[in-house]
């Protein structure tokens, strides 16, 4: 019973991931400059890779007929999800910094803390 619920949570996460991926791909095509597209890409990385991996792990844990294999699948899924969670924000952070250093200005902008820090000399260019 409890494993049925876990399995359905897993399926829900996978479906959520697919929807997130669709949204991210639409965003990647429709947004008009680099930083906005990066935002969409991050949605695809966390929403479209992290959630489905967690969902896959939960789903495989709930499938009893897989035998001991289900623990392998779940373990690999959770470890991969952890590394996606760790590395995806760093990837977008480094990309955004590189774009900022290359002189691309964020276009709909309220505040640019990195530019302020460079002006104050806290952060080197």
């Amino acid at each position: 019973m409890i494993w049925d619920i876990v399995g359905w949570i897993g399926v829900a996460l996978i479906v959520l991931g697919a929807i997130m991926d669709l949204i991210a791909s639409i965003g990647m095509h429709r947004f008009r400059n680099f930083y906005l597209r990066l935002h969409a890409a991050t949605v695809g990385m966390i929403g479209g890779a992290f959630y489905p991996l967690i969902g896959l792990g939960l789903l495989s844990l709930s499938l009893e007929y897989l035998g001991i294999t289900r623990y392998y699948i779940a373990g690999i899924s959770f470890v991969s999800a952890l590394f996606v969670l760790l590395t995806a924000p760093v990837g977008s952070h480094v990309l955004a910094r590189a774009a900022h250093r290359a002189g691309i200005k964020p276009e709909p902008i309220n505040v640019d803390r990195l530019q302020e820090d460079i002006g104050k000399g806290v952060m080197e260019e």
Partner: peptide
């Protein structure tokens, strides 16, 4: 190197 954020995560991934 890159920023502290990138360095920290790279160290974690480097170990694995």
């Amino acid at each position: 190197g890159l920023t502290v954020i990138a360095k920290t995560i790279t160290k974690i991934t480097f170990a694995t």
